[in-house]
Simulated scan of single mutants.
Amino acid sequence: MQLKRIDPRYYVLLFLTSFVAAGQLFLGFFQQWDSMFTAVTAAVAAELVLTRMLRGRWIVPLSALITGLGVSLLLSSHLLWPYALASVLSIGIKHTVRIGGKHLFNPNNVAMCFMLWFLPQYAVSTPKQWTNGYEIMAFILLLGAVAAYTAGRLDTVLAFISGFALFAAVRSFLFGDPLFFAFGPMLGASFQLFCFFMITDPQTTPPTRRARVLFALGIAAVDAALRVMEVTNSPFYSAFLIALFVGLPYRLYNRRQTSKLAME
Rank of each mutant, 00 (worst) to 15 (best):
L214T: 07
R209G: 01
P206E: 01
F197I: 13
R227M: 07
R210V: 13
L214N: 03
L226T: 12
P207I: 12
T208H: 14
T204L: 01
P202K: 09
I219H: 02
I199P: 07
A189V: 13
T205W: 03
F215W: 14
C195G: 04
A225Y: 07
F194A: 09
R212Q: 03
R209A: 10
G218L: 11
A225W: 10
P202L: 09
D223W: 10
D201I: 09
L187K: 05
R210A: 14
T205L: 08
T205V: 13
T200Y: 00
C195V: 08
P206M: 05
T200C: 08
F215C: 11
L193C: 03
A224W: 08
L193H: 02
S190A: 13
L214K: 06
F191Y: 12
M229Y: 14
V228G: 01
F196M: 04
I199Q: 05
D201L: 11
F197T: 15
L214E: 01
F194R: 02
Q203S: 10
G218S: 14
L226H: 06
D223F: 12
L193M: 12
R210G: 14
A189E: 03
V213F: 00
D201F: 05
Q203I: 11
R210D: 03
L226M: 13
R227G: 09
F194L: 08
C195A: 15
A225D: 00
D201A: 13
L187I: 12
P202E: 00
G218C: 10
L217Y: 01
F197Q: 02
M198P: 11
T208F: 12
I199L: 15
A189D: 06
Q192P: 00
A211I: 03
P202Q: 06
T208I: 07
A220K: 08
M186I: 15
T200N: 02
Q192S: 15
M229S: 14
L193N: 08
T208V: 12
P207N: 12
P207Q: 15
R227N: 11
P202N: 03
D201W: 04
M229P: 00
L217H: 05
R227D: 01
L214R: 05
R209S: 04
T200M: 04
R212S: 02
Q192F: 14
V222A: 10
A211N: 04
V213M: 14
S190R: 03
A225Q: 04
A224D: 01
A216R: 13
L187C: 09
D201N: 14
A225R: 08
A211H: 05
L193S: 08
G188W: 09
R212L: 02
A189C: 02
P207L: 14
S190N: 13
A189K: 10
Q192A: 14
V228Q: 05
F191W: 06
M186N: 00
R210E: 03
I219W: 01
